[in-house]
């Protein structure tokens, strides 16, 4: 139906977006790849030389890399477990008949709109601080010794903060999916005498499966790149206890000025993200056809 004329116009209208994104992807990414093969330190400019895969060798055998990889997986996994389980529970709860549902929903999704630096600093100081934080007050009230969260359980604390930020997202998406569930099917199952748990397990959960997958994949993309929360709470420490890959690359390239090694780390991060992206793209692509 589309004429040649309109097709040409269409191409003309798409091209700015395509060219910009192409430039955004190809130029810096190829520069990163190029840098990753160089011995390149910002402190000694003009001394760059080609050193092959040495940067990768250093980055991938650095004990800090294994710590960071482990921390990244724990951070992503921990937040996913909390937000998915919590999100399913909350979505089920919010889907029930109640008074003031709209207001409760507003309360629940609010943390998602709080900027990362604010939520990290509020949790760090006003809740987790071992002297003045609310948790310390609560511990003292119960006659317990206050716990220094960020010093003794830095990664766990960051997981908690990030999970608080992402729980609303999971809840909102799962709730949206839940509301599209055919209620008659549930009624029918109820008539047939299926108990609550069986109704949940055989009808609700399969219906949510798709939404859960989407939440997992999208959150993973964002969680692999958690940065601000680490920067303002622990600076990746103590030691490397709360350093993830994103933070490690930042550390090497912008704080230690080792562009070569930082770039190699950046490429490793790209490869990791691509593995997740591959599955996400397939899910969304399938949806596009339907």
């Amino acid at each position: 139906m589309a004429t040649d004329h309109s097709r040409l116009a269409g191409r003309f209208m798409i091209s700015p977006a395509v060219l910009l994104l192409l430039g955004w992807m190809i130029v810096p990414l190829s520069m990163t790849i190029y840098f990753s093969f160089l011995n390149y330190n910002l402190l000694s400019p003009g001394m760059e030389e080609f050193i092959g895969l040495t940067n990768y060798e250093f980055f991938l055998t650095d004990p800090a890399f294994f710590d960071a990889l482990g921390n990244t997986l724990l951070l992503v996994g921990g937040v996913l477990v909390i937000t998915i389980i919590g999100g399913v529970g909350l979505a089920l709860l919010l889907d029930q008949p109640m008074w003031g549902q709209g207001i409760v929903r507003i309360l629940v999704i609010a943390p998602f709109f709080v900027m990362p630096t604010v939520s990290a600093l509020v949790w760090k100081n006003m809740f987790m601080n071992p002297v003045n934080g609310l948790f310390a007050h609560a511990a003292k009230f119960m006659g317990l010794e206050p716990f220094d969260f960020l010093a003794h359980a830095p990664l766990f604390s960051i997981i908690l903060i990030v999970a608080w930020q992402w729980l609303p997202f999971a809840t909102l998406i799962l709730l949206t999916a839940l509301q599209s569930l055919d209620k008659e099917q549930l009624e029918a199952a109820k008539m047939d005498g299926a108990r609550k748990f069986r109704r949940f397990y055989y009808i609700v959960l399969p219906h949510l499966a798709r939404a859960i997958t989407v939440v997992i994949l999208i959150q993973t993309i964002f969680l692999l790149s958690v940065f601000a929360e680490i920067l303002v709470t622990t600076n990746g420490g103590p030691g490397t206890a709360s350093t993830n890959i994103t933070y490690l690359v930042y550390l090497q390239s912008l704080l230690q000025f080792d562009v070569g090694s930082g770039s190699a780390g950046g490429i490793v991060a790209v490869v990791l993200a691509n593995i997740v992206a591959f599955f996400l793209m397939r899910m969304i692509g399938k949806n596009l056809e339907a």
Binding site: V18, P28, T32, T246, V249, G266, A273, N274, M281
Partner: peptide, 26 residues
């Protein structure tokens, strides 16, 4: 069209640290 849309989406999957150094230098 579908390929272009999917490709655009894939640029969003690029982790920022992958391009941090060049962007900073540029």
């Amino acid at each position: 069209t579908k390929d272009v849309l999917m490709w655009m989406l894939s640029t969003k999957m690029l982790p920022p640290v992958g391009v941090l150094v060049p962007i900073y230098l540029i």
